[in-house]
Computed example of a mutant assay.
Amino acid sequence: MKSPSECESLKDIRDGIDSIDHEIIKLLGERMEYVLSAARFKPNQASIPAPDRVAEMLLERRQWALQHKLPADYIESLYHEIIQWYIAQQTQYWRTKHSITTGNKGTHKLGNG
């Protein structure tokens, strides 16, 4: 993949963006594996949201955003959404593993189904 300054056409730019997006999606899948694995260490469903941990994470992501010259408010908002979605997935996974059903089977998978 060419660096942005090495790109000689819009196709080069799009190829670079597509490559980065593919990697982001791959990493979100890997993150899901960690999130679901963390359910093993959660003694009950109430322990899943971990608001103190979330607050810590959001502050750290804000700092990372600033280090990379990105808007901290946007990155915090983006990660808030990401984290809430993963919490919902971990909750469903935990409930499934503990035979507590809600009628939404398979929601822990990435994608629409």
Rank of each mutant, 00 (worst) to 15 (best):
1 M>F: 02
2 K>W: 03
6 E>S: 06
6 E>A: 07
6 E>F: 01
8 E>C: 06
9 S>D: 04
9 S>V: 05
10 L>G: 01
11 K>I: 14
11 K>E: 13
11 K>H: 07
13 I>E: 01
14 R>M: 14
16 G>T: 06
16 G>M: 05
17 I>E: 10
18 D>G: 07
19 S>H: 05
22 H>E: 13
22 H>W: 09
22 H>R: 14
22 H>I: 10
23 E>L: 06
25 I>C: 00
26 K>Y: 06
26 K>P: 00
28 L>M: 12
29 G>F: 02
29 G>A: 00
30 E>R: 13
33 E>N: 13
33 E>P: 04
34 Y>M: 13
35 V>R: 05
35 V>G: 03
35 V>Y: 04
38 A>T: 12
38 A>D: 12
39 A>F: 01
40 R>G: 09
42 K>M: 15
42 K>S: 14
43 P>L: 12
45 Q>W: 03
47 S>M: 03
47 S>G: 03
49 P>Y: 05
50 A>T: 11
51 P>S: 10
51 P>I: 13
52 D>Y: 04
54 V>N: 02
55 A>V: 08
55 A>N: 06
55 A>G: 01
56 E>A: 03
56 E>G: 03
58 L>C: 03
58 L>R: 01
59 L>T: 13
61 R>E: 15
61 R>T: 14
61 R>Y: 10
62 R>M: 06
63 Q>H: 07
64 W>P: 02
65 A>T: 12
65 A>M: 06
66 L>T: 14
69 K>V: 05
69 K>W: 05
71 P>S: 07
71 P>T: 09
72 A>K: 00
73 D>N: 06
75 I>M: 07
75 I>A: 03
76 E>R: 04
78 L>W: 05
78 L>R: 05
78 L>M: 12
79 Y>K: 09
79 Y>I: 14
79 Y>L: 14
80 H>C: 11
84 Q>C: 12
84 Q>H: 10
84 Q>R: 09
85 W>T: 14
85 W>F: 07
86 Y>H: 13
86 Y>R: 00
86 Y>E: 15
86 Y>L: 09
86 Y>M: 10
90 Q>D: 06
90 Q>A: 15
93 Y>C: 13
94 W>P: 01
94 W>S: 11
95 R>M: 15
97 K>N: 14
97 K>W: 07
98 H>R: 13
98 H>L: 10
98 H>F: 08
98 H>P: 10
99 S>D: 14
99 S>M: 09
100 I>K: 04
100 I>H: 05
101 T>S: 10
101 T>R: 02
102 T>I: 14
102 T>G: 09
103 G>S: 08
104 N>D: 15
105 K>Q: 15
106 G>L: 05
107 T>A: 04
108 H>R: 11
108 H>I: 11
108 H>D: 15
110 L>I: 13
111 G>L: 00
